[in-house]
Design a protein around this nucleic acid. Structure first.
Lengths: 261, 261
DNA sequence: CTTGACCCCGACGTTGCGTCATAGTTTTAA
DNA sequence: TTAAAACTATGACGCAACGTCGGGGTCAAG
């Protein structure tokens, strides 16, 4: 039989036969006078066996071993692990992985969240800001948001949700928005009194949120990701703006210390 | 930030960053004086987005498009198909495929069948022959068996099972075994009377099985696979042996015609 | 005698990076 | 201060399982 015939009957391509030859799975048959491969029925049988094992999920690299083990009328028992069992475990893991992906996708679609942010963070964000708010962010702010999304652990996300709930029906929202506007237009050489006033205003607006903050999140040493996050959030700021944000952070820590007593 | 820093925070390798650059997913950042890449936080954010979308199952080739579509505040609705929905369908298909493989493996393991034969054929074979019988086959016979396993359709396999059931508690088994032994030792120049005798003996042994045979399977024109199968089964035979098997086949057809009346 | 259908071999493309190899740079320990 | 360790860059090969292309020989039919 010639390549084409074997291939057609076995339901593979001629290229596949050549591939099996190259991998050593299929012995090279004798050549007829013209150089064409001259396959015997046993070769066809071997192709069928290879194809079948491959269709079960065995990598071709394993198929040779598996067939050899089968032909050696398998003493197995306990010496050789059952390749089928191992393959089955791998398939199970792979399926679990894909199902995990599908679950995430289902959450994203059901809640119409951004696919490129972790689900819990996306949910918290949805509570904190409307779509228009997010659309109005500068590029740096968007970047900070995405980094935060991946830097935040479960603790931080939980805190975000508490904050979001506290913000509902609160005057803090508009106060914080007003503060952010003023901070943006703060000149680098702003005088001391303007900085102090802005800091005080921010702390006043944030005061009702203090009970939501977790001491664990705020007082422990920051992780590498969090340092980077802070750096990212300061990218577009001038000296005065950085000064004010630093003061606010210290102020929050003081407020938390008071609140803890 | 330098490559290593971005990579560590994003949880990828430096090589991965370079790969994203090569695919055009991540813009090349400016270089510092020494030629090192100097990443901005926005680049880190982009890496995180890419990684996230990739982890959902999007091929990297699609990730760029998906992000672009997201950034263009998605008019979608009906113009652009939801990539998440499409991805979800693909994942579903893939999972179904893998589960199919697992089901086959489960059958194989439960019934201790040869993994390189189709399950229904393996089951029928188990009914027809013991493991020792199969171990005693010549290479050509093994090859024929494997080819038959893949050439046979549901109809032939069903017939095999009927035959197997008919063979139970039947004297045909030993008669057929005796015939096979005699056929093997048949000389190429065996005289006419020996051939006729052998044919008659075989037909007599097969007679009780005739009702199991399906006219559809025997009288329709053979498929390409079946021709090959016959060729394979004749590989080791001499002229007299081929003659006898051909006579038997004709004899079976006659018996079936009689039985149909 | 040509056309179309095969055969051969060799080599590149696919996917998502890992892993050298080679060469310059920066940081750190002795 | 210097030598070693750790980073950076580019370029290239490797993996899995073939698909596909290109160039060149073979064979049957019109």
């Amino acid at each position: 039989m010639r390549s084409n015939e074997v291939a057609r009957i076995a339901g593979v391509t001629v290229r596949t036969l050549r591939h099996y030859h190259a991998l050593g799975l299929l012995p090279e048959p004798p050549r007829s006078a013209n150089g064409y491969r001259d396959y015997a029925p046993a070769d066809l049988a071997r192709v069928l066996r290879i194809k079948r094992l491959a269709s079960l999920g065995f990598p071709l690299a394993c198929v040779g071993e598996v067939m050899a083990q089968m032909d050696a009328d398998e003493p197995e028992g306990d010496t050789a692990a059952d390749p089928l069992a191992e393959l089955d475990r791998e398939l199970e893991q792979e399926i679990a992985r894909l199902e995990g992906q599908r679950r995430v996708i289902a959450s994203l679609r059901a809640e119409r969240l951004r696919p490129d942010l972790p689900v819990p963070f996306g949910q918290a964000l949805r509570l904190l800001a409307s779509d228009e708010d997010l659309a109005g962010l500068t590029e740096e702010e968007q970047a900070t948001l995405v980094i935060a999304g991946h830097a935040y652990g479960a603790g931080e996300v939980a805190e975000l949700r508490r904050v979001a709930e506290a913000l509902e029906d609160s005057l803090a929202v508009s106060a914080i928005a007003a503060f952010k506007d003023r901070l943006k237009s703060l000149a680098a050489d702003a005088p001391e009194e303007e900085r102090a006033e802005l800091t005080a205003e921010a702390l006043e607006a944030l005061a009702p949120l203090i009970p939501c903050f977790s001491r664990d999140n705020w007082l422990r040493p920051p992780t590498e990701s969090e340092l980077l996050l802070e750096e990212a959030s300061r990218v577009g700021m001038n000296a005065a703006q950085r000064d004010v944000t630093a003061r606010i952070e210290r102020g929050i820590e003081n407020l938390m210390a008071e609140h803890a007593e």
